[in-house]
């Protein structure tokens, strides 16, 4: 490679490294704010701000979903299966994928009593896709987790 090209190659590499470092440092500085939601342990430990609109996420704990007899009010517990969980109250229509054991995102306010008042519920799904018959074989015991 002739010296001129070598020099230009160095310039390109320098450009890439410089821009890369800038972006990396910016993202690192913003790291906490780039998370879309607070996981259950941050909600429980009080790291998440109260009285302001935030998003929280977790898995719906089995057996925790309680619906009002006549109305749309529903309450359930979100957990990380590692000892942190909190109660969510919501009034409205739940997404189709909402079920026990499902990852769920809620948006709303965390009260000082530790109860999360949600005004929006989003369902998270994972990258494990399977046909209904296979899912039946895989997890026959998962309540509400199998195909309808």
């Amino acid at each position: 490679m002739n010296p001129k090209r070598k020099q230009r190659l160095m310039v390109v590499l320098f450009l890439l490294a410089g821009a890369g470092a800038t972006v990396a440092l910016t993202l690192l500085a913003l790291n906490e704010n780039l998370n879309l939601f607070y996981p259950p342990d941050q909600i429980v430990s009080g790291e998440a701000p109260t009285q302001t609109r935030i998003r929280a996420g977790g898995m719906v704990m089995a057996g925790s979903v309680a619906r009002q007899a006549n109305g749309l009010d529903v309450s359930f517990v979100l957990t990380d299966y590692e000892g942190s969980d909190f109660e969510v109250r919501y009034s409205g229509i739940l997404p189709d994928l909402f079920r026990e054991g499902q990852g769920i995102l809620v948006q709303g306010q965390l009260g000082s009593d530790g109860v999360f008042k949600a005004d929006e519920v989003l369902a998270k799904h994972d990258e494990n896709y399977m046909p209904p018959e296979l899912a039946d074989m895989h997890r026959p015991a998962a309540p509400g987790g199998d195909a309808e």
């Binding site: 972006v23 939601f37 998270k124 994972d126 990258e127």
Partner: peptide
Amino acid sequence: IIKYSVDWWLTLHQGATFRLTEAPAMPPEM
């Protein structure tokens, strides 16, 4: 950043469908 966004941060988007090092998390007919 696009590729690793789902690993680095908490996102609503699910993880990668295809990974070079692992078998896909779905049966072959899918």
